[in-house]
Design a protein around this nucleic acid. Structure first.
Lengths: 204, 204
DNA sequence: CTATATAAACGACATAAGTTGTCTAAACAT
DNA sequence: ATGTTTAGACAACTTATGTCGTTTATATAG
């Protein structure tokens, strides 16, 4: 039973996990994810195949941890703190999701383009988005008599779904164009937005 | 290369595919999906293992086609026509999604409970929801200057995400309770809802 | 009813996935 | 510095995956 990726004290574990992640990263530049065997990864990482299973249950788990890590880093680079105010954070998260899919940030994320639509990756990304939304949400907030968890999940999936569809659009407009529009689409779902809506009471 | 599931003329193909689906259904009542090998499925279906690959590329493809079929049937039982008016259809779809996850309708769907959260299944369900939403959406409609495809995807993901989170809630309320609330959460995303909101201009 | 085509059965094969147990080496506390 | 703890290397093994070619049975058209 492999151990969680974050908070790995032992430098040996850090080392091998980084080797494995780096190997997968490299391999994904030439092959698609499901063409890559565990053996390929371990060979590229100069790590024994059995060792792989000491860290991840399978190659999907490795991919998932890479994605989660990459996305979190992307958020961090954009200074999206987990306790930021909601509307600004939402905008940043949407933009980060766009960047993540398009792979604007070379290096870390470029390789993930091909596998971006693997359902497992999607699950990892929505989970990351959800975490941000939950953090930026007033505790025990409810929009339609629904608990914050439900709202956060729905909103995170909506964001990812919208960005994904945008990404798939041929001749898609720029991220700068869609981000505010997706935000407009999603904001009504979020508690702070409702209060804004209530206070303004007549918009545009 | 296996052929699409719908419109299979040859009764031999129908037979074997039904056997395979039934076998997976049965097996999933005792094992979780990833504990099931292709060999297990074919043995239970009294079908040669090689034959399996004449129909599905792998066990995930089989699962996906089962899910899509089951969900569509569930919608059909609820008389959700693909050209129905939006608000009513949305409510029905949300309810159908709840039913699908809880497996209220025994037989077809009960077995899928355990694997309901497999990302691949989720992708199949959201795709099915999206199809309904797209059908019930005025062509070339746009909410926030976004194309209907983006809206439909975002909404379908939001619906599934909300229902999923509700389903995971310990001591969750009844489906009858959440459905209208999830609807309230999601409707602002949809074109017909915006017009309603605009006309009412002061809710509740 | 017969001929054709098409699907399933079957066996065999190569490759990949996981598992297990032992031994070695690196980390870290005292 | 030393001993205990824990991770990695390695080999061997079991099981599962996916493919191929041939043979047999069934469906359907004429």
């Amino acid at each position: 039973m492999p151990i969680s990726d974050c908070e790995v004290r032992d430098p040996r574990m850090r080392r091998t996990r980084q080797l494995l992640q780096g190997a997968l990263r490299t391999l994904m530049q030439s092959k698609s994810f499901d063409e890559i065997a565990v053996q390929d990864i371990t060979e590229a990482a100069t790590v024994n195949r059995a060792t792989f299973y000491d860290h991840y249950t399978d190659k999907y788990a490795l991919l998932e941890s890479m994605v989660a890590g990459g996305f979190h880093q992307l958020l961090h680079e954009r200074n999206v703190s987990y306790d930021g105010s909601c509307p600004a954070a939402v905008s940043a998260v949407i933009l980060a999701t766009c960047d993540y899919l398009t792979g604007t940030k070379a290096g870390d994320t470029a390789c993930q383009r091909q596998s971006a639509f693997e359902p497992l990756v999607e699950a990892a990304v929505t989970a990351a988005i959800r975490r941000v939304l939950m953090a930026g949400m007033p505790k025990s907030a409810s929009v339609a008599d629904l608990p914050p968890e439900v709202i956060a999940t729905a909103a995170s999936w909506a964001i990812y779904g919208a960005v994904k569809e945008w990404f798939n659009t041929p001749e898609r407009p720029s991220a700068e164009y869609v981000v505010p529009r997706i935000m407009q689409l999603v904001l009504p779902m979020l508690p702070s937005a409702t209060s804004i809506e209530a206070s303004v009471s007549g918009h545009r």
